[in-house]
Design a protein around this nucleic acid. Sequence first.
RNA 1: GUGGGCGUAGCUCAGUUGGUUAGAGCUCCGGAUUGUGAUUCCGGAGGUCGUGGGUUCGAGUCCCAUCGUCCACCCCA
Length: 424
Amino acid sequence: MTQKLQAVRGMNDVLPADAAAWQHLYAVAAEVFGAYGYGELRLPVVERTELFKRAVGEVTDVVEKEMYSFQDRGGENLSLRPELTAGVVRAGIEHGLLYNQQQRVWCTGPVFRYERPQAGRYRQFHQLDVEAFGIATPDIDVEVIAIAAALWRRLGVSGFTLQLNSLGTPEARTQYRAALVEYLSRYESSLDEDSRRRLGSNPLRVLDSKVPATREIVAGAPRLLDHLDAVSATHFEAVQRGLGDLGIDYTINQRLVRGLDYYTHTVFEWTTSQLGAQDAVCAGGRYDGLVEQLGGPATPGIGFGLGIERLITLIALQQAAVPGNASHVYFCRFGAQAEAAASNLAEQLRNQQPRLRLTLNAGGGGLKSQLKRADNSGARYALILGDDEAAQSVVQVKSLRGEGDPFLCSWAELPAQLVRLLGL
RNA sequence: GUGGGCGUAGCUCAGUUGGUUAGAGCUCCGGAUUGUGAUUCCGGAGGUCGUGGGUUCGAGUCCCAUCGUCCACCCCA
């Protein structure tokens, strides 16, 4: 069977028309993260499988059944990263960034999860990641959450709900876990199959279940927040106060437990009702034990991962402004002399005005069809250079968007004229 | 991994109870006095009807399989 050559299932191309939104998002994100003093970290897409097993957790779905794992030619067990935090921590430890110091970093790139694709869920997707290390106080929890809020503001997207919870210290969590298991065990026969399995492996995830019968049981379960030790409770209150001071609204969701094992204390999720079932756009939390768990010095950390595809979808849905990437001008040229002159002129213009986006007609065609191309390109102005104009060293400048009548402009004055017209 | 919807021109779709050369709109290309777009008029290009089997005198239309896609479960960003 000859199979048509096509992209791998769940892995999408981003076409030029859509890339404008991506570029805009990256530009704004880099600016916002930079404004908070976060530096970019660039990491490999492939890591040792062991890293994710130890960081994310051996019994999580992500590691158990969603990783792209393989052996390379040397027999190493490697995986495409299913998330970014583990790699960030690995790099931090490896390069000594986490020894007794603070680090604020961000990271972006593709991540991979072998899942059944659906709206907002792909096998290769992209995340923006923000992480802060070496700061145990709740002010950094607030800062990290505020960064996301700032990003929404700068992008002009809205309608999020910030859900907040605390998992407490590992000790508190262990204690709570025991209480929860004891409670749930009493109803074991009434639980759904998944939940019964998780009772042994990862009981907190049962809280998250959507099965009605299980939810009923969960409703009467001991509450995590009631089991917080004094330190955790104080920390959580401080986070809430800090968010309140910044005017960031939130709701406490006691069932928010997150699917990755490394979280402690604060966990949060920015969700929206506009994306269907995959409603989490940005999620994260504190992971005070992770660095040590991966062989580094005991170092507190907190961060979030943000789904770029989901955010891009929201931007489109809410029609938030995205600067266009169309050319400013389309240069029409015809006649042997004029074509050569136009080619030189175009180079000069681009050199003198690096911000100018100029498409030079190629492939010939009559003026009519060239102007058609100019119009379709989305350019604001057309430059027209035929042999008549060339003989006088001028070009015709013609608005394609009803911004005044065509006029002739000398080659010498053209750069200044374009700057004026385009507001470069 | 489970369940359901859908796969006909680049795009959005129509194709009557299976029946002669598979249609429309948009896009694209060309033309309407030889150098002026987006409007109008005329013309043109473009499809092995996802793929492979099967039923039939005959299948885009029915059956099976397969791939893809969409949505939900699950999981998460």
